[in-house]
């Protein structure tokens, strides 16, 4: 059996007195798309942010491609460069052009030459359908375009997996489709993806596995079609009846 891309066991996370994650165990296999849903405050974003240690776990273990990322000896920057992350608020660098956003980490982390970085950047911009916007600044782009640039930025480091933290929640409804289309293409290419989302349609259609979280625990998980159409747990039923 191959090593899972992400393996989380016994994960707890507290902010002061407030326990946000109360013992999480789960796995993402290589090439799998896992969607995480749940009410706000359920801890799903915190879980995602623990996977590249933007949040420090209080206890428990996280392995990324078999590497214990909580080991104090681990080269965290190297691990992070293999995990692409896309944020709800895009977080593009506003003082850099689109091309600059895509090149800076390639140059500083991967130590690529300028021409190589630009070539990779252009390839990824074309992939997200924004090849002609490379000289634009983030403020000149729509939210949907910014998020696609953010995806291209993460892809430019050739990551082994991608984390999406509510990638469409800050977008106007008419712009959501373009971003989801890019994510769908990525999934079809076999990218390992962990997606915190409220897009049930996307989860049903693209997800290999669906995780429902509530109050810091995984309440239910399984095949997205099964979970969404016939939820077993009462809390899942209650949540889905509100959002569907």
């Amino acid at each position: 059996m191959s090593t899972p891309a992400i393996q989380v066991s016994g994960l707890h996370k507290s902010f002061g007195e407030h326990e946000v994650l109360k013992g999480i165990d789960f796995e993402v296999a290589e090439g799998q798309v896992v969607c995480v849903i749940g009410p706000s405050g359920s801890g799903k974003s915190t879980l995602l942010r623990c996977v590249n240690r933007l949040e420090e776990p209080t206890s428990g273990q996280i392995f990324v491609e078999g590497i214990d990322i909580c080991d104090p000896e681990v080269d965290l920057d190297a691990v992070r460069s293999r995990i692409g992350m896309v944020f709800q608020q895009f977080n593009l660098f506003p003082h850099m052009s689109v091309l600059g956003n895509l090149c800076v980490a390639q140059r500083r982390v991967k130590r690529r030459s300028k021409s190589e970085a630009v070539e990779v950047a252009r390839r990824n911009l074309a992939k997200v359908g924004l090849a002609e916007r490379e000289t634009a600044y983030p403020a000149q782009l729509s939210g949907g375009q910014q998020q696609r640039v953010a995806i291209a930025r993460a892809l430019s480091l050739d990551p082994d997996m991608m984390l999406f933290d509510e990638p469409t929640s800050a977008l106007d409804p008419e712009l959501v489709g373009d971003v989801l289309a890019v994510m769908r293409d990525l999934a079809a290419e076999g990218m390992t993806m962990m997606v915190v989302t409220h897009e049930m349609g996307f989860a049903r259609e693209v997800g290999d596995n669906l995780v429902f979280m509530d109050d810091g625990v995984i309440v239910e998980e399984g095949d997205p079609r099964t979970v969404l159409s016939a939820p077993q747990h009462e809390r899942t039923q209650a949540f889905l009846s509100k959002v569907l």
Partner: peptide, 23 residues
């Protein structure tokens, strides 16, 4: 400078030094 800027740079694997200098 918004926290998300630093987080974006970190998530790309950028070191503390380069995050500070370039972002």
């Amino acid at each position: 400078v918004p926290k998300g800027q630093r987080e974006a740079a970190q998530s790309l694997g950028m070191s503390g030094f380069w995050t500070m200098v370039t972002v």
